[in-house]
């Protein structure tokens, strides 16, 4: 082998494998045909939501005649607190994003490793970086994908706010980081759950199905068991999204007090997923 070539191997990459994996995941999601299609559908759905239902609801909240009707709807949904937001566009965005983003993130991050493991592609990676870099790099990659989508939707909502009332530009600007922080942390356990299921399951469809079962049935089961053994109700805190309803009823600066729940859930799912992946045959 050419000695010069061997020496060039000593040129160290500026990125840790962990960041390279995350970057590849991010680029792969937006640069591939499949990724572009999913992102396109996402933006289309959000554009429709922002320019029709959210715009309508925001105008109605801001309008004294429409507000009573919207308040009734918000009351049905348990979201009366939104009426107290000065920025009605962001108020409605918050309520919609809190419920929709977790669902999107769950679907979009469902195949963090399954297809690649099935086709043997992981075997090329484990010779070059640790399993930890692969597992956590993929998770961070998917969080970055969601962060990009959040930034796009927040940007569009901000433009909508400016179009409706440009005097509120500063208030809008100040609320953006808070909304971003809250939503990214709300999403993280859903992505982490899919990281775990990507390791544990051999099919993307089954992984999604199991995730839905966990989200829908876990609380019912835990509550029925907890009626006998109250201490077991603590397991409710492991169900992703358990705090969302409560967060939707709070003002944006009060929701920080609930963010420990998604952080704790993410740590648990990631710890479990990594423990499994470290021992898994690939």
């Amino acid at each position: 082998m050419n000695k010069n070539t061997l020496d060039s191997g000593n040129q160290q990459s500026t990125f840790h494998p962990f960041f390279l994996i995350a970057k590849q995941e991010l680029l792969g999601s937006f640069a591939s045909k499949g990724g572009l299609f999913v992102s396109g559908v996402f933006i289309l759905i959000w554009s429709w939501l922002l320019f029709y239902p959210i715009q309508f609801a925001a105008e109605a909240i801001g309008n004294s005649e429409g507000s009573s009707f919207v308040l009734v709807i918000l009351g049905w949904l348990g979201l009366e607190a939104l009426n107290s937001w000065a920025l009605s566009e962001f108020a409605v965005y918050w309520a919609v994003a809190l419920y929709l983003f977790p669902v999107f993130s769950l679907l979009m991050s469902s195949d963090q490793m399954i297809s690649e493991r099935k086709r043997g592609g992981l075997r090329f990676l484990t010779l070059r970086c640790s399993r930890g870099s692969i597992f956590f790099g993929r998770f961070i990659g998917h969080i970055l994908i969601q962060a990009c989508l959040l930034i796009v939707t927040l940007g569009i909502t901000y433009l909508l706010l400016l179009a409706n009332n440009s005097a509120l530009w500063l208030e809008g600007m100040l609320v953006l980081p808070l909304l971003f922080l809250n939503l990214i942390l709300v999403i993280s356990p859903f992505v982490a759950l899919m990281s775990l299921l990507s390791v544990a399951m051999n099919s993307v469809r089954i992984a999604i199905l199991i995730a839905i079962i966990i989200l829908v049935l876990a609380r019912v089961m835990i509550n029925s068991i907890a009626s006998e053994f109250y201490v077991l109700s603590l397991f409710n805190y492991l169900v992703p999204g358990i705090q969302i309803k409560e967060m939707a009823q709070l003002s944006i600066d009060s929701t920080v007090s609930l963010l420990w729940i998604p952080v704790l859930q993410s740590i648990c799912f990631l710890g479990l997923g990594y423990g499994l992946f470290k021992r898994q045959s690939i």
């Binding site: 060039s8 191997g9 000593n10 040129q11 160290q12 990459s13 500026t14 990125f15 494998p17 390279l20 994996i21 590849q24 792969g28 591939s32 045909k33 499949g34 690649e116 086709r119 043997g120 592609g121 075997r123 090329f124 990676l125 070059r128 970086c129």
Partner: peptide
């Protein structure tokens, strides 16, 4: 074992080389 079908040969192998420590 199969590579990522969405990447070119050059991208695929340079990605692996980067993971191995190459700039």
């Amino acid at each position: 074992a199969l590579f990522d079908p969405s990447l070119t040969l050059l991208k695929q192998l340079s990605y692996l080389a980067q993971l191995q420590g190459y700039g």
